[in-house]
């Protein structure tokens, strides 16, 4: 499935690279306004552009599931709200993600959950932008893992803010978003300050 061919004569240069799962706080993810594809192929990966200046095809997040809803009749899917110290992630799992859907079916909120999924952005006719995450997997975890994730995500966010070498993505983000780095640092501080020593 998603594992590259090994043994034999693998073409190392063209070997499939799995997209890393970025660590993003809900407070940053909800600010996304830019979505693009790398290439014109139908199968080329789709990215959202993080305001802190990095493309993102996949996220890993840990938070508390506060609400779960079953929706749709024939094309049934689950919609869940998962909160972190900075806001809410909207996570969906439908019939195209049978694994995640079955995992989601067994989870009763409130619960700490770890989610791997793909972010995407929708614009409603009235101009409201919605950012949601299509789950690839979702598992119940404990508080300590949530705390580890907050540290991990704080570090990743600061790394992106402090990145000294401009990349095409960071240049793109600077043009697209006019972020206030100080506000982002405050968000990170706020998230960290909710953890106990």
């Amino acid at each position: 499935m998603s594992t590259p061919a090994t043994g034999g004569f693998p073409k190392r240069e063209n070997m499939f690279e799995r997209e890393p799962a970025r660590r993003v706080f809900a407070g940053e993810l909800r600010e996304i306004r830019e979505q693009f594809r790398d290439g014109t192929d139908e199968k080329s990966p789709s990215y959202v552009l993080l305001p802190t200046g990095q493309r993102c095809n996949r996220v890993f997040l840990v938070g508390s599931m506060t609400e779960k809803k079953r929706q749709g009749e024939q094309n049934m899917f689950y919609r869940a709200r998962i909160v972190d110290p900075t806001g809410t992630f909207f996570v969906v799992a439908g019939s195209y993600q049978p694994e995640a859907m079955q995992q989601m079916a067994r989870i009763e909120p409130p619960a700490f959950v770890a989610v791997v999924g793909k972010p995407s952005m929708y614009e409603t006719p009235d101009g409201t932008v919605l950012v949601s995450i299509r789950a690839e997997s979702i598992t119940i975890v404990d508080r300590e893992i949530r705390d580890c994730w907050v540290l991990d995500t704080a570090k990743a966010t600061l790394d992106r803010l402090d990145n000294p070498t401009p990349s095409p993505d960071s240049v793109h983000a600077t043009e697209k978003y006019h972020i206030d780095p100080v506000a982002y640092r405050k968000m990170v501080y706020h998230a960290l300050s909710q953890l106990k020593f």
Binding site: L158, L192, F197
Partner: peptide, 9 residues
């Protein structure tokens, strides 16, 4: 690590 990151913010 928490202390270190708090300082970094």
């Amino acid at each position: 690590l928490l202390a270190e990151l708090l300082n970094r913010t």
